[in-house]
Design a protein around this nucleic acid. Structure first.
Lengths: 155, 155
DNA sequence: ACTGAAAATGACGCGCG
DNA sequence: CGCGCGTCATTTTCAGT
């Protein structure tokens, strides 16, 4: 991972459909070695794939809710069991194991609060090993960045 | 936004480099009308762009920290001022205006805790209008989904 | 469906560490 | 001596008509 690799990754994060020729001249390489680097970055799973960026509001999912889940037990097995269950819920966009009270933080998307409530009662609360749940609603999304800060100054 | 549109968006979220021909047969259309729909979805900003998916760990940003920021004042102007300042920090991947204590929730990425601490003291705490800051660390990322749940069953 | 264009792939020679 | 870049030619594939 040298500086050119970082510039390649940064450029592909901004525009995943850039052609190899354009990318090459952006990073100051000729097409062939540039393509080689991209292939290597993909093989190393630095780049894990390519996708369209979609506006959640315009596809009818304007609401984000942060849900803190406390498990009955916090050992490795309980966490694994919960993890395997929670990945089956497509509404859960992010899931983190947190320090502190060692609970779990989810970001869930929903059409509206009614839909979320239904999701909460019928789906999430039925997962195994949950002691308590606490929900916090996002009124508005100020930032949702798609590009990681790469490079020295954070490209 | 009909069902075919949703399938197009879902397919492009999974693979943003799929060709129009492949996409067309995936959704059961011939290439030309399929391309028209994609162009429309882009024009309507349902699809806002295309990007590479990058593994945060493999580019040296394995740590996510959730930072709750309480502002001194919670009126529209104070929020706007803060928003304009916080977008200049590339480490801030997400930023939400929350209900309840009406504070702001950030997800920040960092190389390690030392780097984060530096970011906190030298950058974030210097933003205008902050009353208090509280940080919660993610030990592990269990899910980071890139595709919104579209369609009836959540494609 | 066709045509024109552009990009990805492979082979080869070169320079630098 | 080996690794990585550059140029060239070939083949495939895509978008526009």
């Amino acid at each position: 991972m040298d500086d050119i690799d970082r510039r390649i990754v940064a450029a592909l994060q901004r525009d995943g459909r850039i052609t190899n020729v354009e990318l090459a001249e952006l990073v100051g390489l000729s097409p062939t070695p540039c393509a080689r680097r991209v292939a290597r970055l993909e093989a190393e799973e630095v780049i894990t794939g390519y996708g369209a960026r979609v506006d959640p509001v315009r596809v009818g999912l304007p609401v984000s809710i942060f849900v803190s889940v406390e498990l009955e037990r916090q050992d490795r097995e309980a966490i694994t069991t919960f993890e395997r269950a929670v990945v089956t819920l497509p509404e859960v966009m992010e899931c983190y194991l947190m320090t502190g009270s060692r609970d779990i933080l989810l970001r869930v998307v929903a059409e509206d609060l009614t839909t979320f409530n239904h999701f909460l009662e019928e789906r999430l609360m039925r997962l195994p090993g949950i002691r308590s749940i606490r929900s916090n609603f996002a009124l508005r999304t100020l930032i949702r960045r798609q590009s990681l800060p790469l490079g020295p100054n954070g490209s």
